Amino acid sequence: RELEAFAERFKQRRIKLGVTQADVGSALANLKIPGVGSLSQSTICRFESLTLSHNNMIALKPILQAWLEEAEGAQREKMNKP
């Protein structure tokens, strides 16, 4: 249940930020998480549509959570600048 809720929230917030699935995939490489490079657009799509295996969903959740927090933080900074 929690994974499904996160996937839905992730998709809504990604769209609100105006970021494509492909952008998310390539931006993950910038997070410098050990062992994590970029991901394909189709992987992000399959995460959002819950068609990845349960284990893959569990593995990707903290990575996508980290990206989302960073992206939303950058958005807030941009909006707070005069």
Rank of each mutant, 00 (worst) to 15 (best):
R1S: 10
R1L: 08
R1W: 06
R1G: 09
E2T: 05
E2Y: 04
L3H: 05
L3Y: 07
E4D: 10
A5S: 12
A5D: 09
A7W: 01
A7R: 02
A7S: 05
E8Q: 11
E8P: 01
E8D: 06
E8W: 04
R9Y: 10
R9T: 14
F10M: 02
F10Q: 00
F10G: 00
F10C: 00
F10N: 01
F10R: 00
F10I: 01
K11S: 07
K11W: 01
Q12N: 14
Q12G: 05
Q12F: 06
R13I: 08
R13P: 00
R14P: 00
R14M: 00
I15R: 10
K16H: 10
K16D: 13
K16P: 00
K16M: 14
L17G: 01
L17E: 01
L17W: 03
G18W: 15
G18E: 03
V19T: 07
V19L: 11
T20N: 04
T20I: 01
Q21H: 12
Q21M: 07
Q21E: 10
A22Y: 14
D23T: 07
D23L: 04
G25A: 14
S26D: 14
S26H: 12
A27Y: 10
A27C: 13
L28F: 07
L28C: 10
L28A: 03
L28M: 08
N30V: 04
L31G: 05
L31K: 14
K32I: 06
K32Q: 11
K32G: 07
K32R: 09
K32P: 05
K32D: 13
P34S: 08
P34C: 05
P34Q: 10
P34L: 05
G35S: 04
G35R: 09
G35A: 03
G35V: 01
V36W: 03
V36R: 05
S38R: 14
L39D: 04
S40I: 05
Q41D: 14
S42C: 08
T43G: 02
T43H: 15
T43V: 10
T43N: 05
T43W: 06
T43L: 14
C45F: 07
C45Q: 14
C45P: 05
C45G: 10
R46I: 00
R46Q: 14
F47L: 06
F47H: 00
F47C: 00
E48N: 00
S49N: 15
L50S: 13
L50K: 13
L50E: 04
T51V: 07
T51M: 12
L52E: 06
S53L: 02
S53T: 05
S53W: 02
S53K: 04
H54D: 10
H54S: 14
N55E: 15
M57T: 03
L60C: 15
L60A: 03
L60G: 01
K61G: 04
K61I: 15
K61V: 07
P62I: 01
P62D: 05
P62G: 05
I63E: 04
I63Q: 04
L64S: 01
Q65R: 06
Q65V: 06
A66I: 06
W67A: 03
L68R: 01
E69I: 14
E69N: 11
E69D: 13
E70D: 11
E70R: 09
E70A: 08
E70L: 05
A71C: 06
E72N: 03
E72L: 03
G73A: 13
A74W: 06
A74V: 12
A74R: 11
A74G: 09
Q75T: 10
Q75V: 10
Q75E: 11
R76L: 13
R76N: 13
R76D: 11
R76F: 10
E77A: 09
K78C: 07
K78H: 13
K78P: 09
M79Q: 10
K81F: 15
P82D: 13
P82A: 15
P82L: 07
